[in-house]
């Protein structure tokens, strides 16, 4: 999965001679296993936990995991695109809180549903646009700085704007339904994840902009040389990440039937962890939406299982941390294997 080959030349009339040396096949098998690793771990983990914890596999618990994971999953998909372009978006958690507060204010002012949704999405996208534009046109060395700044600014604004600087109860019924209603046994919030994933999948896999995002992540210098509008691509990526935070805000506000300036604390770390655990490269260039989704569910499953066993929350944090180390080591191992594949190519076939 790490090295997707969705668009190769496989079916064509190329000399597909299979006489590459044996080591080549082994390296490629190892790489394939490595890229399937996170999904494999998820499946094994689910089966293992289900075997020892009867409560885990109950439909209601599985539905709970997905519902609890939905916000991380949505925001992590935006984060994945940012990380793909060698960046990072630290502002997503505060951005999400600000989105809910602005949405809550819109609800108080209008009482409608649409204004609330639009307010949340627009706020998210606007913060993303600020991140992207300042990063690109301020010629900052790394997006860490600007998104760290907006992390602080958004949290401050959210607290300042919220009446009484605290949680605002109540959301319009259609939004609250995201938490209370189910379709085919799935919480509505989970359907939002599917919808966002579908849209982003079309964009990243089928549209020119998606290919440009991958290219910018792979080699920004070459992208510039090949006439790809690198700055525009980067701004777009941060806007999408902000928009995902806005969508996450709608889902979280719906699930809790409230808006709050303290929502989304450490969400930036959860989403980054999800992307890395899922198998994307932290150095950029490698990764797809599946990584964000698998990582988010993996985190959800681990937390849920430890909760069911009454393991205290600090050990959950330790567990997640250990898995991050594992994921990064897997990425290092992958680069080694790829280097070996290059040498084998030079020896065997050149």
């Amino acid at each position: 999965m790490a090295r997707q080959t969705e668009n190769g030349l496989g079916t064509t009339n190329l000399a597909q001679s299979a006489q590459g040396p044996k080591g080549d096949a082994t390296t490629r098998l190892a790489l394939r296993l490595l890229s399937a690793g996170p999904l494999l771990i998820l499946v094994l983990l689910v089966l293992g936990i289900a075997a020892v914890t009867p409560a885990f596999a109950k439909p209601i618990n599985l539905g709970n995991i997905l519902a609890q994971t939905s916000v991380i999953a949505i925001v992590a998909m935006g984060q994945q695109l940012v990380i793909l372009t060698r960046g990072i978006d630290l502002s997503v958690g505060s951005n999400l809180a600000l989105c809910t507060v602005v949405g809550g204010l819109a609800y108080q002012a209008t009482g409608g549903t649409l204004p609330v949704v639009l307010a949340m999405l627009a706020t998210g996208a606007l913060v993303g646009a600020v991140n992207g534009l300042v990063y690109v046109h301020g010629r900052l060395p790394h997006p860490f700085i600007i998104t760290l700044a907006t992390l602080s600014i958004c949290r401050g604004l959210a607290l300042a704007l919220a009446p009484g600087h605290t949680t605002m109860r109540g959301m319009p019924d259609p939004i609250a339904a995201l938490g209370s209603q189910t379709v085919l046994g799935l919480p509505l919030g989970v359907l939002v994840v599917v919808l966002v994933a579908g849209l982003l999948l079309v964009m990243t896999r089928m549209m020119v902009v998606g290919r440009w995002i991958t290219a910018v992540g792979g080699n920004p210098q070459a992208a510039l040389g090949m006439g790809i509008p690198v700055k525009g691509v980067l701004v777009a990526v941060y806007v999408i990440s902000g928009l995902c935070a806005g969508i996450g805000a709608v889902v979280l506000a719906g699930r809790t039937d409230a808006a709050s300036p303290v929502y989304g604390q450490l969400l930036e770390l959860d989403t980054i962890a999800a992307v890395i655990i899922g198998g994307a490269s932290f150095l950029g260039g490698r990764g797809h939406l599946g990584h964000a989704l698998i990582g988010a569910v993996l985190i959800g499953v681990i937390r849920n299982a430890l909760n069911l066993h009454n393991v205290e929350v600090f050990y959950q944090m330790v567990a997640i941390g250990l898995i991050i180390v594992l994921a990064v080591e897997a990425d290092v191992l992958r680069s080694h294997l790829e280097a070996r594949a290059r040498v084998q190519q030079a020896r065997g076939t050149a």
């Binding site: 090295r3 080959t5 668009n7 190769g8 030349l9 290919r211 991958t214 290219a215 992540g217 792979g218 080699n219 210098q221 070459a222 992208a223 040389g225 090949m226 260039g285 490698r286």
Partner: peptide
Amino acid sequence: ALFDNLSPAQ
């Protein structure tokens, strides 16, 4: 000026 993460066709 190649893109490491893209296939030859890409």
